[in-house]
Design a binder for these strands. Sequence first.
DNA 1: TTCGCGCATTGACACAGATCAACGGAGGGC
DNA 2: GCCCTCCGTTGATCTGTGTCAATGCGCGAA
Lengths: 246, 246
Amino acid sequence: MNKPLTAIDNCSSCPIRHRAVCARCDDDELVELNAIKFYKSYSAGQTIAMRGDALDVVASVVSGTATLERAIEDGRTQLVGLLLPSDFIGRPGRTTLQYDVTAVTDVTLCCFYRKPFEDLLVRIPHVQERMLEMALDELDAARDWMLLLGRKTAREKIASFLMLIAKRTVHPDGHVLGNISRIELPISREAMANFLGLTIETVSRQFTGLRKDGVIELDGNRSVIVPDLETLLLESGDDSDGGPLI
Amino acid sequence: MNKPLTAIDNCSSCPIRHRAVCARCDDDELVELNAIKFYKSYSAGQTIAMRGDALDVVASVVSGTATLERAIEDGRTQLVGLLLPSDFIGRPGRTTLQYDVTAVTDVTLCCFYRKPFEDLLVRIPHVQERMLEMALDELDAARDWMLLLGRKTAREKIASFLMLIAKRTVHPDGHVLGNISRIELPISREAMANFLGLTIETVSRQFTGLRKDGVIELDGNRSVIVPDLETLLLESGDDSDGGPLI
DNA sequence: TTCGCGCATTGACACAGATCAACGGAGGGC
DNA sequence: GCCCTCCGTTGATCTGTGTCAATGCGCGAA
């Protein structure tokens, strides 16, 4: 079912090689996808959509970082998803959005009108399959996150977050993790706090704690240097399950 | 696409009317489903499957309660899913299990061998659709749970949990919530603690707190009487979003 | 009946992380 | 240059929940 790379390269709707909607489409199917797609850009800080909005497009992130957020009236908010390039927003079969979506950096989305996209899912089974695969991946990620939120200490939360970003930013190229030494943080301290179920003060203190213990070095606010990734992994509290860092 | 009720009633593989795999199957399709299904029962406390196990069946819960759990070596565990009747275990496209599955009451599963089930998904698109729908529902549930774990107080967590159980146990009959006054807890204090990211002592203290404040009454360890559901809802910290309790 | 065991409750205390408050430093506009 | 704003850091203190330990209660076995 896998098509030669040329087909993937031709898919202008999904510049992302990895985990994209069209990863296994043939040329005819790409034409169909292209017919219903368009690009849309947002600048940093902009609200992409709000909870309750009608959901008439679905989209995949081409570049930039966005967040999926859930809030309670009194101001408490929890980030429930981090949308990095190749991640998917919205869902076939749903008419309204459950979460607030915000661009935290400049963001470009590859959008599909929901209705024709759903029709297309019926016609092209492996795209439907792909959607299921992606939903299940997200579910796994959400469940890992539940373990983090429910049971990990602040320090472990920060270390886990750094590992998550390290994995996500390196993987797409097929590049092996291993000796990655610099992690670029896509979000602010505040967003991190909302992601990890902490306050910004605690996030900040844990960063300095890890720095003083030599686990990380800081280069400005958005860049972390990791002398030894293995040490960071130990701090994260993840049972590494054997197997190398992928 | 909806078939008359008789078709659903005929589906011996899915006795659950609500949210079942076969909810929209016609008779021929039901025959196909029946050909690859079998029942399996587990007694309370039994391990159904462990993390890392080969996943050669998928299943839907017919009766009883099971839990999906993730553990760290040092003994900390987090419940990442509560499996009640009509919930689905396992996933097409995955070969190993990510979580420990345990029966907390006596449980009966309706199992399908994974391989033929996957083949069937390709042939019957609306079952594939249904799988996606179920995965997305679970994802929503997991994300709501992230808000709970990351941002709610112990008291709110308990109240939210009670509301969750109230909704799940009533809804299948099409029965309107509203004046439900008794909630049967499917799990122990320990499991609740693992679900809510708390300790059993805190769970216990919050129960007595809610009792002393007249929000709930206790009838034994597994039965909660709720004089006024609206009061409980307020305690849960959920923005009720308008709309009646469903 | 009594014993023992598993589960739940309650109490005393400790501590991780929240809260409140002050300060620092980078960048942009004038 | 200066000021202002935003974001992050650091300090002092408070508090909700965890930890450790004792007690209670129901239930099955002997």
